[in-house]
Each structure stands twice: as structure tokens, then as C-alpha cells.
Amino acid sequence: MTTVERRYARLVHLYPSRYPRDEILDTVLQSNARFTAREAFGLIVGALRARTGADVHRGPAEFLHSASRLAALALLVHAAAGDVLRALPLDVPAILQSPDGIVQYATAGLIALILHVTTIVTLARGAYRVSAATAVLGMIAAVVSASRFGAAWVQDGFWAAPMAALLIGVLAATARRERSSPMWWLLAILPAVVLLPTGSGAVLGVAWFIERQAFLVMAVLAIAWSLLDARVPLAVAALGLCNLLTIVQILLSAGWAGDGAVAGQLALAAAPTLVLLAAATVSRRRSPI
């Protein structure tokens, strides 16, 4: 095996085994006597598309369905991460030391967490109606749990559960079903506690207030990923929209809606979400196949 052959073979092995790896290697060697960056990039992108499901042909309706499903799963991870903070065991001292019996809020948080995890599993597995029911119940439990700190709708990450329930309700009303493994979504819940806007810094310590920076990094990665799959920036935009709704609620409740400087801050907060939506649109339109 020559050096060129070996280098291309390594890239071709990135493809899943259901792809004709031997044949792809044969074709790339017929097309190129030398190792070129263009072919290498094409093979890496092709392999990533194959592994993430972006290689499947989707018409406009199928694309919208699949993107909504991904967005709902991302929102559910966000909602479940918020539940983790409000449930046991992170808040045990607060629960035990509180004079006014707040154990019901933590219990509601735990119930919300269980329901949101169930929703992730059922949605990923294609049981949309069950997931719609558990999403609504999870949303109610999350609202009860969050009301411990006052108005639930102005708290970080509050809108994740209602938005997910709404999206799943719409998906359940359609005839299409998409199935995948829920494993990665479930594994994402714990990192999401500090990476998504959940207000984790208030519970874990100020040093954990990294959610804004983390969202910007996530937005940049999603924009880069739009080269492969236009659904991913849409899913991250849903998370951004969720955060934006919280900011708008805070502004409205504080009566700052007419303030010019506040409007500027709001526009700045909305910018990553708008850029993500634009990246998804461009990606969808420029797809070569």
C-alpha cells in the first residue's frame, strides 16, 4: 500500500460500515494520483454526514420535521438540566435549612427531571404521543418547581420546557416518525447544567457562571457545523430563542421595554440566534446534493 493510498484509506474508514468503503477508496485513487486537500475535505465531510444522519435526503417538510425534532430534544436537555439544579441532591442544604417547608419544590423538580428524561427517551425512540404527554406533565412539574424562587417565567431556562412541549405537540400531530438512540441526549444533561443558561452559578458558585461564553462557543460550533447539516444551527437557535424569551420577560416585568440602551442590549442578545437562523438558511439553500 502506497503512502497516498494509506492516507486516503484512513479517511475512508471514517465512513460507517454500511457504506462501500472499498469502492470509495477505489474511486478516490482512480481520481487522484496525489493526496489533495479538496478530496480529503470531501471525504471527511461525507463521513460526518453519514455518521450524523445528514446524508439522508429530506424534502422541505421532512427537513422541517427533523429540525423541529432535534430542536425539541435540545430544549428537553436544557429543561432537564434546569430540573437537576432544582431537584436533589444539589440543593439538599437549602431544603433542610429552609423554615417554610420547600421540600415540595425539590420534589416537583425531581418529578420534572424524571418526566423530561422520559420525554427524551420516548421522543428519540419515535413514540411522539407518549412524549407529548410526558412533556406537558414535565412542564407543569417544572413550573411548580421553579415557582419556589418567585415568578417562574423570568428564571433562566424556564422557556425550555414550554417550547419543547409545544414543538413535540406539533410533531405528534404529524404522521412522520424519526428514530435514533437517546444515549447522547441523556449524556448531555449533566454538562448542560453549567453550559446552558440554567442559572447554575447561583447554586454551584459564581465561578460556574460560564453559560454566556458557553452559548457563544456553541453558536460558533453550530455555524461551522451548518456546512454539514442545517438542522444543527436551528436546534441551537431554539436554545438561543429560549434565553431571549427570558430576557424579554425580565425587561417587560421591570418596565424597561422603552429604554434605548436596553433595546441595544436586547438586540445584542438576539444576534447569535439570528446568525444561527441565517446560517441554517444559507446551508439549506447551498447544499450541493
Binding site: 465512513y15 457504506y19 462501500p20 470509495i24 474511486t27 478516490v28 481520481s31 479538496r38 478530496e39 475535505f41 470531501g42 471525504l43 471527511i44 465531510v45 461525507g46 463521513a47 454526514r49 453519514a50 446524508d55 439522508v56 435526503h57 450541493p288 446534493i289
Partner: peptide, 11 residues
Amino acid sequence: ATGTLYTALER
């Protein structure tokens, strides 16, 4: 590119 071709052939 070969990668583009095989994504298209699969679809």
C-alpha cells in the same frame, strides 16, 4: 469530490 459523489449515490 469522491465524498460528495458517495453521499449523493447513497441518497
